[in-house]
Amino acid sequence: MKILDFPSTTRTRVLAEKYGYDEFIVRRWFKFFGEDTIKIMETFEEGLPKYIRVNTIKIPEKELIKRLEVRGFRVDPTDIPYCYMVSNEPYSIGATPEYLMGYYYIMDKSSCVPPLVLAPKPGDLVVDLAASPGGKTTFLSMLMQNKGTVLAVEPQKERLQPLIDNVHRMGAMNVAVLNMDGRSIGKIREKVVGGVDKVLLDAPCTGEGIIHKDPSRKTDRDAKDLSFCSYLQKELILAAYDILKDGGELVYSTCSMAPEENEIVVDFLLEMRENVEVVEVEYGVEGLTIPELDLKWPEEIKKTRRLFPHIHRCSGFFIARIRKV
Rank of each mutant, 00 (worst) to 15 (best):
L270M: 15
G34M: 07
G148S: 06
L238T: 05
Y51E: 02
T137G: 13
A223Q: 14
G171R: 07
M142R: 08
F32V: 10
V196I: 01
S87D: 01
Q156G: 00
D128G: 12
R217A: 10
P49I: 06
S111H: 06
R159C: 01
A95R: 08
P114Q: 03
C314V: 02
K324D: 09
V14L: 15
W297F: 15
E154K: 02
P122C: 05
N262G: 05
M170T: 08
I164Q: 12
A223W: 10
N262L: 05
D197A: 02
P7G: 08
T289R: 12
A16L: 02
V167C: 05
R323K: 15
K324M: 08
M107R: 09
D76K: 11
Y104S: 12
C83G: 00
L116K: 05
S111W: 03
T206L: 10
G182L: 09
E286V: 06
V177N: 10
F6A: 09
F6V: 09
K324A: 13
I188Q: 13
D5R: 14
T289A: 10
Y19M: 02
L140N: 13
P309C: 01
G135V: 08
V276G: 14
R313N: 11
I93D: 05
K218H: 04
E158G: 03
P120E: 04
G20C: 11
F24A: 11
E261M: 05
I188D: 10
A130Y: 02
P81W: 06
D222N: 15
V278Y: 13
R273N: 12
R67G: 04
F32S: 00
R169T: 07
P204M: 09
L307Y: 10
I40W: 14
I80L: 07
K303W: 00
R306N: 13
P291G: 13
E154Y: 00
L226K: 11
V193M: 06
L64S: 10
F318K: 05
D36A: 07
V192D: 04
E263A: 10
L295A: 12
V153F: 07
E89H: 08
E17N: 14
P309R: 00
D5V: 00
Y91R: 14
D79W: 14
S256Y: 09
R53D: 00
Q233L: 07
L200E: 05
E271H: 11
V199R: 01
G94W: 03
D108M: 01
D225P: 04
C205S: 12
K296H: 11
